[in-house]
């Protein structure tokens, strides 16, 4: 069968079955063939694909297949495989595949951030799928960050995972993001607010706030249904922490699997539950557990129990001012 195949003349059901056998990179390659080829991509069920944008690694992942963005200075290290057009910009590309037979497509750009944004917009339009995850370095320029957020929020009102923060990002923009997007799984807030904000903290299963100096016990109460809480640079005091631990013990944080709070306002001899210390220095044991995909490791903690019998282990590191609870 060496004659050309009239793919687009196949019955829709057949075409759909064929396209469902392709991975996202093969579909992308097909979409580049012609406008008509582009128009059939969603027949593959691509609307249900999982698209992750990771600005840390300059990559976009679709169902585990990666579209990587490299700087134009590096193509000499890679065998080039022609050019591809992303939202009107034609750039050099290279194909690679890893050991798990997941394919990678590397595109080369003068400006990696512009490249990442362009590829992201293009792939979202090709696959017509929602964006599941947006990970960003907090130093990303606010203009680029907001254009990506505006794009996401114009297409969906929920996102599984989002990192909120950018260089010189004003408070009001951050608050506006929370008005537009509901982060359901994992919220990472790396923005440093000038004033205590009013933002929803009860939507996500996991919350990580890098600079949580504005967090009060009232805010903690909003996080009662979280599985994982991580607060850095908080201003919580011994009293706040004792209140939190008592609430947890009485079962007011029923889903909590892991909590980690750092505060410079905790006294060196802070303890709770009537224990002499929240650190086992006599027979320290390690505890390891995976929670929401994150590996948590604690060493030298003290075993405690909630009133309902649920066991946990607690550690207070007086040097760092870090209190951790890991539910076993």
């Amino acid at each position: 069968m060496s004659q050309p195949l009239k793919l687009l003349h196949l019955p829709t059901l057949v075409l759909r079955s064929v396209l469902q056998l392709f991975n996202p990179i093969e579909l992308f390659e097909l979409s580049q063939c012609s406008r008509r080829a582009l128009s059939i991509i969603s027949l593959s069920g691509s609307r249900k694909f999982k698209l992750h944008m990771n600005e840390f690694t300059n990559s976009i992942h679709v169902n585990g297949h990666s579209f990587l963005i490299h700087s134009n200075g590096s193509p000499s290290e890679y065998p080039l495989h022609g050019t591809r057009t992303f939202n009107g910009s034609t750039v050099k590309i290279c194909h690679q595949s890893d050991q798990k037979s997941k394919q990678k497509l590397i595109s080369f750009w003068d400006n990696k951030l512009v490249g990442l944004k362009t590829v992201f917009f293009h792939l979202s339009a090709v696959f017509k799928c929602p964006i599941e995850c947006g990970r960003f370095d907090p130093t990303i320029p606010a203009a680029i960050y907001m254009s990506i957020i505006d794009f996401i929020s114009s297409r969906q009102s929920e996102i599984n995972e989002l990192c909120v923060g950018g260089e010189n990002l004003p408070d009001e923009y951050v608050i506006d993001i929370f008005n537009k997007l509901r982060v359901t799984e994992h919220l990472v807030l790396c923005h440093q607010f000038c004033r205590p904000p009013s933002i929803p903290l009860n939507n996500s299963k996991s919350i990580s706030i890098w600079n949580s100096s504005w967090i009060t016990t009232e805010h903690l109460n909003l996080m009662k249904h979280c599985k994982k809480i991580h607060l850095g640079r908080s201003s919580l005091t011994d009293r706040d922490m004792t209140s939190l631990l008592n609430d947890w013990k009485s079962g007011q944080f029923p889903n909590l699997q892991y909590l980690c709070i750092q505060s410079n306002f905790l006294s060196k001899n802070f303890t709770a539950f009537g224990l002499p210390s929240l650190r086992d220095t006599v027979n320290p044991q390690p505890h390891i557990k995976t929670i929401l995909g994150f590996i948590i490791w604690i060493y030298g903690s003290v075993d405690v129990q909630r009133n309902d019998g649920v066991g946990a282990t607690v550690l207070f590191d007086k040097e760092e001012g870090v209190l951790q609870i890991l539910v076993l």
Binding site: P4, L7, L8, V18, E29, Q32, S34, R35, A37, G82
Partner: peptide, 21 residues
């Protein structure tokens, strides 16, 4: 699918007789 799998855009165009952009 096997006729197209693993092929890049140029190779696909040859197989499926699509006019290029």
């Amino acid at each position: 699918a096997r006729m197209l799998r693993g092929k890049n855009t140029q190779e696909m165009i040859k197989v499926i007789t699509l006019p290029t952009a």
